[in-house]
Design a protein around this nucleic acid. Structure first.
Length: 116
DNA sequence: GCCATGACTTATT
DNA sequence: TAATAAGCCATGG
């Protein structure tokens, strides 16, 4: 039970919270920044089990190829698109231009995330 | 422990 | 550009 909310999730949530408004990051990118390489799928689990009260900006996490993970036409997909567009992120045919909107943290931000 | 499943990736056609 | 396959790893039955 408590094991369903391991310490890894906390690190993942912190990383997602550090994605700036108007920018996006891929599941694998979040995993890497959280110190969990090759755990992209764990990121999706962490997002799903995040408490509502946290108001995690989960909509800023998308696939590495720029597409939204939810099924086309699903409520979640529409919510994600709406929230992104409210932040100025352009979404066309379920896809975001990574060259333009992918978060590229500088060294200082990455070191902060590590929390030595 | 084996097997199926997933808000995933990467490589290959 | 798009579809397939194979790899990946935590979870739950």
């Amino acid at each position: 039970m408590m094991s369903s909310m391991p310490k890894h999730y906390i690190k993942i949530w912190e990383t997602v919270l550090s994605i700036p408004t108007g920018k996006v990051a891929s599941y694998s990118q979040v995993a890497d920044l959280a110190g969990l390489p090759r755990r992209a799928r764990l990121v999706s689990k962490a997002l799903k089990s995040a408490p509502q009260e946290m108001q995690l900006p989960w909509h800023r996490v998308i696939r590495a190829n720029g597409t939204i993970a939810f099924a086309i036409g699903s409520a979640s997909q529409r919510t994600q698109i709406d929230r992104l567009q409210e932040e100025g992120v352009i979404v066309v045919k379920n896809r975001i231009c990574m060259k333009q909107f992918q978060w590229q943290p500088d060294l200082a931000e990455m070191l902060w995330a590590l929390k030595f």
